[in-house]
């Protein structure tokens, strides 16, 4: 079995709780240090006793007890630059198929058969609750089966 591992107990814990001032900016408040809470003492003792039972591949106790800083984050995700190529049904695709994912997902698919596309559309509607107008489904399948999937 693996070596008996030393548990880092009672390590000083530093957490930075930051307020997200605005999207795209990260603002860190001054760090605050907390001792190990009293309610954890018995648990830590139990964990220490438990440690020796871990297998050889188990994660190892970290050797140093340095505090780790975590900072709140806020960002904006980029938006899609691709659109469905022109063709009969393009408008139906735009109105039905972009709530859950961007067009690139479809444009990167291999050229599936009409039956396979019908299966995919059915799965999106029935399994993933895609807000697709049932009357539009034939036009969607036709469009998918007809588009030249451009690189």
């Amino acid at each position: 079995m693996g070596s008996i591992l030393k548990v880092v107990a009672g390590a000083a814990v530093v957490v930075v709780v930051a307020v997200v001032a605005s999207i795209g900016h990260r603002v860190a408040a001054p760090p605050a240090t907390y001792p190990t809470p009293p309610y954890m003492q018995s648990l830590l003792a139990k964990i220490a006793a438990d440690e020796a039972k871990a297998g050889p591949n188990a994660p190892k106790a970290v050797a140093d007890s340095a505090g780790i800083l975590l900072r709140s984050v806020g960002f904006a995700f980029p938006t899609e630059g691709r659109a469905f190529p022109p063709g009969p049904g393009q408008d139906v695709m735009a109105s039905n198929c972009m709530s859950c994912h961007t067009p690139g997902m479809i444009l990167n698919q291999p050229a599936l058969t009409r039956a396979e596309w019908a299966g995919e559309v059915s799965k999106m509607v029935k399994v993933y609750h895609a807000p697709v107008d049932e009357a539009d489904i034939p036009a969607i399948v036709t469009y998918l089966a007809s588009i030249k999937v451009a690189p």
Binding site: A11, V13, V15, P37, P59, K60, A61, V62, L70
Partner: peptide, 14 residues
């Protein structure tokens, strides 16, 4: 649990 609570638990690395 806050992340402070999580950070107070024994730390492991893998």
């Amino acid at each position: 649990l806050t992340m402070t609570d999580i950070l107070a638990l024994p730390r492991v690395e893998l």
